[in-house]
Design a protein around this nucleic acid. Structure first.
Lengths: 182, 182
DNA sequence: CGCACTCGGTTCAACCAACGAACCGAACCT
DNA sequence: AGGTTCGGTTCGTTGGTTGAACCGAGTGCG
C-alpha cells in the first residue's frame, strides 16, 4: 500500500530533505515517533497520549512500518506493538534538534518542561545542552543512555494545563528513553 | 491572521516538538526554508524550484513571516523578498540533521547529490560529516560559512532526472549558503 | 458455555486543506 | 497605449483529516 505522501511532484525534488519528508512529513508522524522514543509502543497508548483519530494513527503506523522506521511485532496473541528499527533510532538527533528549536523559539523563557539527562555518563551526567551534548563528559549520547523527566512542579510556570492520560503521568517521573512504559 | 496549522489539539501537547511543528509541520514549509538557506529569496524563484501552487506558497510564506522565521522586505518598488531572521537561521542544524537522515536511509548508497563544505575553515575545509562537523577543523560551522554544490556529473548515478529551472541550475555550481542567487 | 469488555482496528460522512487554472493589479518596457 | 513580468487572490475540484459508529479477535468472569 505504498503512497507518496507529499505528492508526485516531490520525486522531482533533487534533495535528501524531500526524501525524508516523504516518510516523516505528514501530520502527526513526528509526534508518533517522539512517543516511540519515550517508550510508548501500543496503539492505545499512542492514541491516549496524542488525541489522534484512530484511522490517522493506523495509517501513519502502516506508513512508518512500510518505510522501515518502525517494526510491528506481536507481544501477546492478537496484540502487536510498534518499536523503532535501527533506521528509526537514527532519527533521534533530528527529533532532538527540532525539539530544541521549539524550546528556544516557540515556548516561553526558560525553555520547555522536559529535560534529558545523560544517565550512563562516566562523569556523573547532566542535562543535555542545545546541541545534544552532555556537558559533563562532552560526548553526544545515544538515546538509549538518556533519561527524560518533566520539570519539577516548582519550576513549572503553569502556563499550560497538564494532560492526565496514563502516558503523560508516566513521563513526569524520570524515565529511560526507549524503555517500555510501566 | 494567526492560525494554528495543526489543529486545536496540538496545544494540548505538552511538548517543544509540537510547538515547533505548529510552525514548520505543514506541507512544503521545510522545503521552502531549505531554499531560503540556499539563497532563494523571491516568490517566483521558490515557485519555479518547488513546483508549489501559488496559493500554498503565499500561505506558507505568510505563516513563516508571522512566526518570525522569515522577514519580508522590499528590494525594489512593489517587489518584496523573503529572508531568514535570526530565529530562522537557528533552524539550520535541524534542517541539516533531517536531510542527513534522508541521505542515509532514503536515497541509494553513496548518499545524496549535494555536498556541504566548510568554506571559511582555517584548516582548509572539507565536506561536512553526518553530524555537521567539519572534519578538518572539528568545529560545527554556521550556515554562513558553508558552501554547497552538486556532485560532479561523473559521481552522479543518473538515477533521477535533473531539474532544469534557474534555481536548480545555479545550485549545481559551488554556492555560498544564504548568498542571493545570481 | 454465555456475556461483557478491551484492544486494535475499518468504514463512513462531513469538513477542510491542497491543487491548478484563471484572474488581477502594480510596475516596467517600448 | 499595449504587452510583459511579478506577486499575488479567487474559485471549483480533488483528496486528506476528523470523529463517531461499527467490527472481530481475545480475555475475564459467573
Amino acid at each position: 500500500m505504498w503512497r507518496v505522501p507529499l505528492g508526485r511532484d516531490y520525486d522531482r525534488q533533487d534533495c535528501a530533505l524531500a526524501r525524508a519528508l516523504e516518510v516523516l512529513g505528514e501530520r502527526w508522524t513526528l509526534l508518533v515517533l517522539r512517543d516511540c522514543f519515550f517508550g510508548v509502543r501500543r496503539f492505545g497508548d499512542l492514541r491516549a497520549h496524542l488525541d489522534i483519530p484512530r484511522a490517522v494513527l493506523s495509517d501513519r503506523l502502516a506508513t512508518l512500518v512500510d518505510a522501515g522506521v518502525l517494526e510491528r511485532r506481536p507481544y501477546a496473541p492478537g496484540r502487536d506493538e510498534y518499536v523503532l528499527t535501527a533506521d528509526g533510532l537514527d532519527l533521534w538527533p533530528a527529533l532532538f534538534t527540532l525539539a530544541r528549536w521549539g524550546d528556544r523559539h516557540r515556548v516561553g523563557p526558560g525553555g520547555g518542561r522536559r529535560r534529558f539527562r545523560h544517565a550512563d555518563c562516566p562523569a556523573g551526567g547532566a542535562d543535555l545542552t542545545t546541541g545534544g551534548l552532555c556537558p559533563a563528559c562532552g560526548t553526544l549520547p545515544p538515546p538509549t543512555s538518556l533519561e527524560t523527566r518533566s520539570l519539577d512542579p516548582d519550576e513549572d510556570d503553569g502556563s499550560r494545563p497538564e494532560r492526565d492520560d496514563a502516558v503523560s503521568r508516566a513521563l513526569r517521573h524520570p524515565h529511560r528513553l526507549l524503555a517500555p512504559l510501566p
